[in-house]
């Protein structure tokens, strides 16, 4: 029985153990893997007697000696700890998602935004509301210097005139208020053209480009209203903007569903368009595309398959690609206070609708009980702010005992609400997928770290927190 203070993992034959409360990662052999299934830090004799039929006793004693050394160094069986004092009770705004268009020129079958209108009327944000939102962000962020604004929809480019005004205003206010604003725009790509690409590049706007894999899969899920596929139009735009940025400052982001569980192949098809890739599971309840229990073993095998290809290419066999969920920095990363805050929805992060309503995040838009105010009134639900702030991995019963808690930050509140009707109850299906891809990420980055220590070129991904890299003249290569 594995001790809850550690987690062992196997990915494609490679093994590692995570010391949950310190973050230490160790690559291990099979004997250590088996020993840690019994050993709890104190029961040496029981461990030897349990495993002596499989391993030589002197070797078992040697392994236990190594494990005791790690314990003395604070790298194994580290004890649990309390919420750090630095986790402030009063949150400070760090990011906003501006719904510049509750309208879209596509009719994607799984869209949580109800094909763009979020279940309401089709509506575009005005420049006045957009500017008010920028002011709300600057005021709410108080002395915090770094701010993030995501331009979202629907499809933001159906309202490009207003998008331009908002971006220009944000850059102006940024200087006046001595802020550093990271701007991101999420688009289906079909409306990208020379003019808007130039504008987005000139204004250092990161882009998230929605692509679901190869042509067949993408067209099946992401059609135009006349039911024709959008792949050709989207990829034309994506290739143009990626080339204009020398392969920097973008992510291709896809969604897999019950109809596309063999997603590894789709990810590899995406590498023909760009090398910065994220592919995420759809979240549903009863819709035909909803992932099922029977899909899970297939999905896990796909992550293993993708991990094999990812490692092979980073070790020199083919062109490396970036996969968002395999990006884990083992040497650094945010402090625990930051890990508890997670995405910040409902306390550090809000979504603003076209009419200026405030919701905890883009996925809560349209769920009336979560409306938190308007740009005119400000946030008028301190009860909700407090609830979101204090719903984290050290307060949620299921999260408290999960080994992945300091990596996942408790999962998505909106999914928990959608599936369980309660943000304090994690969406367990999503947790299982999250744990699988975290195991892949930890083992992959551990192997690449060891490669580096042994003298190979450092092929770990550059985790730049999706910050706009200025002045890149050479193609991105890892």
């Amino acid at each position: 029985m594995e001790n809850q203070l550690i987690h062992r993992m196997k990915v494609n034959g490679d093994m590692a153990v995570l010391d949950v409360n310190s973050g230490a990662v160790h690559l291990i052999d099979e004997m250590v893997y088996d020993v840690l299934g019994v050993f709890d830090g104190k029961n040496d004799e029981e461990t030897v007697s349990t495993l002596k039929n499989k391993y030589d006793e002197s070797e078992l004693v040697e392994v236990l000696g190594e494990l005791h050394e790690l314990m003395e160094e604070g790298l194994l069986f580290s004890p649990e700890f309390d919420v750090p004092e630095t986790f402030a009770t009063e949150p400070v705004l760090k990011s906003l998602c501006l719904h510049v268009a509750h309208d879209c020129n596509l009719r994607c079958k799984y869209c949580f935004a109800g094909t763009g209108d979020f279940g309401g009327k089709r509506e575009l944000m005005s420049a006045e509301t957009g500017k008010k939102a920028i002011d709300f962000a600057i005021t709410g962020s108080r002395k915090r210097r770094n701010l993030e604004i995501d331009l979202f929809g629907g499809e933001p480019l159906v309202n490009f005139g207003v998008v331009k005004e908002i971006i220009q205003y944000a850059r102006k206010r940024e200087k006046e208020a001595n802020k550093n604003i990271k701007l991101t725009l999420t688009t289906n790509g079909t409306l990208l053209n020379d003019e808007n690409i130039q504008f987005l590049n000139d204004n250092r706007v990161m882009v998230v480009l929605s692509l679901d894999g190869g042509k067949e899969m993408h067209d099946a899920m992401r059609p135009f209203p006349n039911k024709t596929g959008s792949y050709d139009a989207a990829v034309r735009g994506f290739k143009k903007i990626i080339a204009s940025r020398k392969g920097w400052n973008y992510y291709l982001r896809g969604t897999y569903t019950h109809f596309s569980t063999h997603f590894a192949e789709e990810v590899l098809k995406m590498t023909e368009v760009g090398k910065e890739i994220s592919m995420e599971p759809v979240v549903g309840t009863t819709e035909p595309y909803t992932l099922t229990e029977e899909d899970l073993p297939v999905l896990f095998a796909e992550y293993d398959k993708l991990a094999t290809e990812y490692l092979k290419r980073r070790r020199g066999e083919g062109e490396p690609f970036d996969f968002f969920h395999f990006n884990v920095a083992l040497d650094n990363g945010p402090c625990v206070a930051k890990r508890l805050a997670g995405c910040g929805a409902g306390h550090e992060y809000y979504a603003i609708t076209p009419s200026g309503e405030i919701y905890p995040c883009h996925q809560f838009v349209g769920r009336e009980q979560y409306k938190m105010g308007t740009l005119d009134t400000g946030v008028v639900r301190p009860d909700l702010v407090k609830k979101f702030r204090n719903t984290h991995v050290m307060t949620k019963p299921e999260c408290k005992k999960c080994w992945a808690r300091f990596f996942c930050s408790g999962g998505c509140h909106a999914n928990a609400d959608l599936v369980n009707g309660d943000i304090t109850k994690p969406y367990e299906y999503g947790c299982r997928i999250q744990r699988k891809r975290l195991e892949c990420a930890i083992v992959l980055q551990a192997l690449l770290t060891e490669d580096t220590k042994e003298g190979a070129e450092d092929m770990r991904p550059e985790i730049d927190n999706f910050k706009f890299q200025v002045g890149k003249t050479e193609e991105k290569r890892k």
Binding site: N21, G23, A24, H26, I28, E62, F406
Partner: peptide, 15 residues
Amino acid sequence: MKKHVKTVNKAMLNG
């Protein structure tokens, strides 16, 4: 030098 364990990182959780 440990024979069975390679420590990859130094405990990062240990603002």
